[in-house]
């Protein structure tokens, strides 16, 4: 039975219990515990199953490392979370709201960087940010603030076609930060950055999470770097979640008794054993 056939019955059952929960306990019951929550999220491209019954739970205020080998479905999952890909039953909730019913209010709370930054090379860095500022209808001062945060104030007036890879990446992060979003979805945000830049972004993300209670959902292949600051991880392979939860639980569950394994070791063990 395909996921599409399995889903409707379970989806209806889940929604019945969700309505009972809301009526009995009130509408605020665990809605704000998770910034991102999916229920049996599945997606097929033709005959290929890309995402398979994904039940993602990203706690509010966490730095969630979304890990997986190439082709595991990470970017597709991110696109599903943002509503960029249509499915029959998306089952995605962002801060307790359904993405289908409250698209604009949800997107106003999200800052996203998907794969490479999508920039207009014929415009300057400042103008690229200005486009986002107009869309988010925020104050002009925020553009200067985010430029300062990512260290691009001096290069703001240069056209993006003259930017280096690292500068483009910084501008992509600035675009995600504009509008003071509650949720940051970052796909390989440190791609192209030098070690100082990587450290700076790490420091910024930790501050956003710990001081400003932002939720950071980050996908990256730099496992050694991720291990330094993520609080939760989700490991995806072939569209299925192999593990999801706090980092210390990952180590507790998968490290050998006498030796402490790194995130990379555990990741490779999990993903290789499921091939």
């Amino acid at each position: 039975m395909s996921p599409a056939d399995r889903m409707p019955g379970r989806f209806q059952c889940f929604h019945f219990f969700q309505r009972v929960e809301r009526v009995w306990f009130g509408s605020k019951s665990k809605q704000m515990t998770y910034a991102i929550e999916t229920h049996q999220l599945s997606y097929c491209r033709g005959q290929q199953l890309i995402v398979d019954n994904l039940n993602l739970q990203v706690p509010v205020g966490s730095i969630f490392g979304f890990l997986g080998p190439n082709g595991s479905g990470k970017t597709t999952t991110i696109r599903l979370l943002l509503g960029l890909i249509r499915t029959a039953n998306p089952c995605v909730q962002i801060f307790g709201e359904d993405i289908r019913e409250n698209r604009l209010s949800i997107l106003a709370k999200i800052g996203a960087l998907i794969e490479a930054p999508m920039l207009y090379p014929h415009l300057s860095g400042y103008e690229n940010l200005e486009i986002s500022r107009l869309a988010r209808q925020v104050d002009r001062k925020q553009v200067e603030n985010v430029l300062d945060l990512v260290g691009l104030t001096r290069e703001a007036k240069k056209r993006v076609e003259h930017y280096s890879l690292g500068m483009r990446q910084r501008l992509g992060i600035a675009l995600a930060l504009l509008g003071n979003p509650d949720l940051l979805i970052l796909d390989e945000p440190t791609n192209g950055l030098d070690p100082a830049g990587i450290r700076e972004i790490r420091r910024l993300l930790v501050e956003l999470s710990q001081v400003h209670r932002k939720t950071v959902f980050i996908s990256s292949h730099l496992l050694s770097e991720m291990e330094k600051f993520v609080t939760h991880v989700g490991i995806l392979n072939h569209g299925q979640m192999l593990f999801q939860g706090p980092v210390n639980r990952l180590h507790r569950d998968f490290s050998a008794q006498s030796t402490e394994q790194t995130l990379e070791d555990i990741f490779l063990t999990l993903t290789n054993s499921k091939l």
């Binding site: 696109r79 999508m118 869309a135």
Partner: peptide
């Protein structure tokens, strides 16, 4: 082509604009 060439549609549709 301004959007197509820069693969900007994903970004455009992720903005809070109808």
């Amino acid at each position: 082509g301004i959007e197509h060439q820069n693969r900007a549609w994903g970004y455009v549709y992720s903005l809070p604009v109808p």
